[in-house]
Amino acid sequence: MPESVRQHYELYPYPDYPLFASVRRRDTYANNLDALWALFNGELPPPAARRILIAGCGSFAPYPFALANPDTPVTALDLSRNSLKRARLHCLLHGLTGVEFLPGDLCDPNLAPGPYGMIDAYGVLHHLAEPLAGLRALAARLAHGGIVRVMLYSRYTRLEEDSIRRALRFLKVRDPEQVRRMVARSGKDSRLRGFFESSDEVSSRSGLADALLHPQVKSYRIAEILDLVAASGLELLRFAHRGALPEPEREVARIRELERDKRAPGNFVFYLGRDVKGPCREQDGVYRLNPCLAAALAPWRLAPLHLPGRLGHENAALDGAERRFLRRFRKPVPAADLSRAELVKAGDYADRLFLMRCRT
């Protein structure tokens, strides 16, 4: 990875959430290794795969991953020592241990050797000089049955952002305060001012730097993503950006239609896998509650339960009846003990990662 990228994140660790900013464990349910492994393999991960790598962890991601997986070793790898320092402090302030913080380049095969059951590369590969080399380096660390989550910038989502970034580079603007002064002097109808008024990311210094001053950025069309995945040797399992269809082929077709009009569903989020076994059938195996939701479903909690959308779903608040239904799965429930209607409901919750469906 270019030295300029390391220097950028030493100056602007990202994101810069307050150190006391907290996350509820129930909201980390989609980061739980058991739930993700069960979704794509129809079973719980074997002991050798109970490890998580956050490749390019930044200053925050180790905290929600450690919260979601308290009994699973997490390795947090990043170029920037300042980012790692802030990430370590965030975990310590919230009483989370079990995270190894490792400085270095994810393309270095001597760092963080596998196998890992899950690798997170959220917003990382598009900052590499050779994204394919980075993805292959992650694939080499992945256990059989393992899962990689990737987020990549979308070309049509970032048209304005990329245009402004190129203009600022041409003008040799390198400091966030320079950009803010330019915005202050710009006309009320200028594109630069319009972007600042519509973007939440530029409200912070590090967010502005990441969006508009980053030295190495690539954005993607869907065809380029498919080529990248095919060359990596991994299998495309599922898209997980907002509104994504569950079947990859249908979602690819939907995105192609959007791109014909120079539109996109936002930045691309998707899961890749190596030799996954496929999900367990609804009528087979047993169902278990995602462990991140156990405390939130306690009987004395009477208010509706709100969970953030994941895997393309918009989650409505769970009412009392739905919570009572999910409580039944605190202990494993065989599919044979469920009615047809209950199986359909349990299958939907398993697809959303609220439940884990595993072969017996």
Results as ranks from 00 to 15, higher is better:
residue 209 A to R: 06
residue 245 L to M: 06
residue 275 D to L: 11
residue 209 A to V: 01
residue 264 A to I: 00
residue 222 I to V: 14
residue 221 R to Y: 08
residue 216 Q to R: 13
residue 236 L to H: 11
residue 220 Y to G: 01
residue 287 Y to A: 07
residue 212 L to E: 10
residue 234 L to P: 15
residue 214 H to Y: 10
residue 255 I to G: 08
residue 279 P to S: 05
residue 263 R to Y: 10
residue 212 L to D: 09
residue 266 G to I: 01
residue 205 R to Q: 04
residue 292 C to R: 01
residue 276 V to W: 13
residue 269 V to M: 15
residue 270 F to W: 03
residue 292 C to Y: 01
residue 197 E to Y: 10
residue 247 E to R: 02
residue 280 C to I: 01
residue 284 D to K: 03
residue 230 A to M: 07
residue 246 P to K: 09
residue 278 G to V: 07
residue 201 E to I: 13
residue 284 D to S: 06
residue 224 E to F: 14
residue 265 P to V: 00
residue 218 K to W: 07
residue 238 R to N: 10
residue 276 V to Q: 09
residue 251 E to D: 11
residue 202 V to A: 08
residue 292 C to S: 05
residue 292 C to I: 00
residue 217 V to P: 02
residue 286 V to Y: 04
residue 223 A to Q: 14
residue 205 R to H: 02
residue 197 E to I: 00
residue 198 S to D: 15
residue 245 L to Q: 08
residue 204 S to P: 08
residue 255 I to R: 05
residue 286 V to P: 00
residue 220 Y to H: 06
residue 250 R to A: 14
residue 199 S to H: 09
residue 282 E to L: 13
residue 230 A to L: 03
residue 262 K to A: 14
residue 241 H to E: 12
residue 218 K to S: 14
residue 287 Y to N: 08
residue 216 Q to P: 01
residue 246 P to A: 08
residue 240 A to R: 03
residue 248 P to E: 03
